[in-house]
């Protein structure tokens, strides 16, 4: 047609396509990889990955997803950072949660990951956090169930933003934040209960030289 330019997917620059792909979940990206050679190359370099498990579903696809991610990350250039890894609604099988944590450890060993978002607790995630040295942003807002956690085990000097919620602990939150996250600039605490001070009002004292932004919801 005269004067009418046709934009199809093949005219769209790689950067724009990658941005479109970053709105998709891992299971969709797995399919896109099989569409064409160009898609395959782009899928390997998508900046962010998200995965949500169907809530309380007995038919989980964890193993397929992890096997896909393993292949994908093996092909990904190691100097290519991962911007966000986001997982919501985990599989309830404890074996799969162990695998999940193992996979996370490997990803952090191989890549710089900027942000991690989880809404459930993985085995030894709190102790293991120290190994995630590239991490700048961590979002742990538990929505499925309440967890009792040992916060003092969790520390990471590189962390700049922390969102944490839906947990109970015997530790003092103020002390924990002051000692464990020395570079923290932004903190969001939501529904964090200090078990030992449940009957009286707790004081939150945070000593930090770089904290700029503090948001509290029902602590």
């Amino acid at each position: 047609m005269e004067g009418e330019s046709i934009v199809s997917l093949s005219n769209i620059p790689d950067a724009v396509l990658c941005h479109i792909f970053s709105f998709l979940e891992v299971k969709d990206i797995a399919r896109l990889k099989a569409v064409s050679r160009r898609f395959q190359t782009l899928c390997i370099s998508v900046p962010s990955f998200s995965f949500s498990h169907p809530r309380r579903s007995p038919n989980c696809s964890c193993l397929h997803v992890f096997s896909f991610m393993k292949t994908l990350l093996r092909q990904r250039p190691h100097d290519l950072k991962i911007n966000i890894l986001s997982f919501s609604s985990s599989c309830i099988k404890s074996k799969h949660r162990k695998l999940h944590m193992l996979w996370l450890n490997r990803s952090f060993q191989a890549f710089c990951v900027n942000e991690l978002s989880l809404n459930y607790v993985l085995p030894s995630i709190f102790k293991g956090l120290q190994k995630f040295q590239s991490l700048k942003v961590l979002k742990l807002i538990m929505t499925d169930e309440r967890y009792i956690v040992k916060l003092h085990e969790m520390r990471l000097a590189s962390l700049e933003r922390l969102h944490i919620g839906g947990i109970e602990t015997e530790d003092s939150v103020g002390e924990w934040v002051s000692q464990s996250f020395t570079s923290l600039r932004s903190l969001f605490l939501f529904d964090v209960n200090e078990a030992h001070v449940s009957t009286k009002q707790s004081d939150l004292i945070i000593r930090s030289s770089c904290l700029e932004d503090l948001t509290l919801g029902w602590i």
Partner: peptide
């Protein structure tokens, strides 16, 4: 693209396999 099969994606976006 969500939930589309590979061949559906190829068809709707005119991508050659």
């Amino acid at each position: 693209m969500k939930g589309m099969t590979v061949s559906q994606i190829r068809k709707i976006f005119h991508i050659k396999n």
